[in-house]
Amino acid sequence: MPDFSLDLHGANLDAAYSRLMHGLGQALAMGARVVLVVTGKPRPVDAMDRGERRGAIRAKISDWLAASQYASDIVAIRGAHRRHGGAGAIYVVLKRRR
Rank of each mutant, 00 (worst) to 15 (best):
S18I: 08
A15Y: 05
G51Q: 06
A76Q: 14
G31N: 10
R58F: 04
G88D: 03
I57R: 00
A87I: 12
S5V: 11
G10C: 10
F4L: 08
Q26E: 15
L13F: 08
V35S: 00
H9R: 09
M48Q: 12
W64P: 02
V45L: 13
L24E: 05
L13S: 09
R82V: 13
M21H: 07
L36S: 01
G10S: 08
E52A: 14
K41N: 06
D46W: 07
M21L: 12
G79M: 11
L65K: 07
L94E: 00
D46L: 09
R96P: 03
E52K: 11
A71G: 05
A56I: 13
L94T: 00
I90T: 03
A71E: 06
I57D: 01
P42L: 04
G88C: 05
V45W: 12
D3H: 14
A71N: 06
K95M: 06
V35N: 02
R78I: 07
L24P: 00
V38C: 09
L13W: 08
H22F: 13
I61K: 05
F4T: 01
D63I: 08
P2N: 10
V45R: 15
K95V: 14
Y70P: 00
I74T: 05
A66C: 05
A15L: 15
L8R: 01
A11F: 15
A76N: 15
L65D: 06
S62H: 14
G25I: 03
M1G: 15
S18V: 10
G31F: 07
G88H: 02
F4E: 04
L94G: 01
I74Q: 03
D73G: 07
V34Q: 07
V35C: 05
M48W: 10
A16Y: 07
